[in-house]
Computed example of a mutant assay.
Amino acid sequence: MANSNTQLKTHRVLSLFKRLASGEIIQKSVEAERFHVTEKSIQRDLDDIREYLAEEQIEGKCCEVIWSPTHKGYTLVNISKTWLEKHDVLAIAKVLLESRAFCMSEMDSLLDKLLLQVSPEERQHIQKIISNEKFHYAPVKHGKELIHNLWILSEAVREQRQVRLNYKKENDDQYIQRIVEPQGIIFSEYYFYLIACIHGAKYEFPAIYRIDRIQDMVILSEHFSISYCNRFEEGEFRKRVQFMHSGPLLRIKFKYWGKSLDAVMDRLPTARVVESDGKVTLLEAEVFGKGIKMWLLSQAECLEVLGPAEFREEMKWSVGKMLSQYTR
């Protein structure tokens, strides 16, 4: 009998804690009726939860069960900066929706889990704010689930294990098979990319694979090794690549006289101002590959590329080719 009572109490306490953690308001009278016990028993259960949380606070996890006069019940509140708060959840939800990176089912799941971090009242408020964006959410066209593969590939990166993958290039009906040594995962312009070296190949820079175009993959038992000084650094690579077009490292120099120099500096994190007269600004930047040309051309007549000389000639050719489309 004693053992049975202990099990019932354990179940009751866990139920209360689970619902407190999900943002529910606990009323002693309601819970006493639910579990067929007295309100004093529920109070003791809440005291047990408080004692547990007090011990957890020593480890830096600061939560507390308090009485809410507004709701006439008990609620769990975060009294530290270790949990997401309502404004954090709103900001992350906005970024997720703007990314368009996930299919509808994954986006719904991510938002639902994210909203569980706040109270039901705050959850309802955030849902109203994002409801229009969520209703009109337009995921990218591939429609594939990605989250599981992102985790699998991140494990392969961490463990330095080779991956055999079947990959389909854009506008190509045929799949190619590669054994690669994954270096990192990057998100850019709606898509996730795997940065990897092709096993056995001697290329100056790694290959870039859009993860949604990987048809299937197998994590192999074979490992590869990279010295610490030669490790791939996603952050440094991301600062120097545009539209995920890989290639040799270029140091470009250009003049800019558009409306927003800040937008240029944000787009090119490696850019630095060499000189400026208040109207025209001379900048230098380090970039990988030719994706930078796509961005430079998008600035229309607001800039001029000065170097390298070969790259300047390439820009002149592209501008001339564009002009010819309008003068035929």
Rank of each mutant, 00 (worst) to 15 (best):
A21R: 15
Q174F: 15
I195T: 01
Y209F: 14
V241Q: 05
S227H: 11
E286P: 01
H199W: 06
K134D: 07
E233N: 14
E106H: 07
E304A: 09
E85V: 08
P308E: 02
V140G: 03
R240L: 04
I130H: 02
L249G: 00
T70L: 12
T270C: 08
E145V: 03
N149H: 09
L14C: 07
R240H: 06
A91P: 11
S22Q: 10
E301S: 11
E189S: 09
V218Q: 14
R213P: 00
Q215D: 05
M104G: 12
E204W: 10
E98N: 13
A201G: 09
L16A: 04
E85T: 10
S22C: 08
E313M: 10
K81E: 13
E64N: 03
R231D: 07
G200M: 05
S227T: 14
N5C: 11
E313N: 09
S227V: 10
V241R: 04
Y256I: 01
R34W: 13
E310C: 13
P248I: 15
A32P: 00
L297N: 08
E170K: 13
Y52I: 13
L194Q: 03
D48K: 03
Y209Q: 02
Y256D: 01
S15Y: 10
R251L: 09
Y228E: 15
Q57S: 15
F243S: 06
I147K: 06
S221F: 06
E275Q: 04
M294A: 15
R238D: 13
A54I: 10
Q27A: 10
G235A: 10
Q162C: 15
K239S: 14
Y326E: 06
A309S: 11
G289C: 04
L115Q: 01
S119A: 02
I25A: 06
A156C: 07
G200D: 02
F232Q: 01
Q57N: 12
R19F: 04
A93G: 09
K144S: 06
I252G: 05
V280Q: 03
W295Y: 11
L116W: 07
N171Y: 11
E301K: 10
V180H: 01
M217Q: 07
L96W: 00
L306T: 01
S225T: 14
L110M: 13
G320A: 01
L297D: 09
I214S: 01
V13E: 02
I219F: 06
I49D: 00
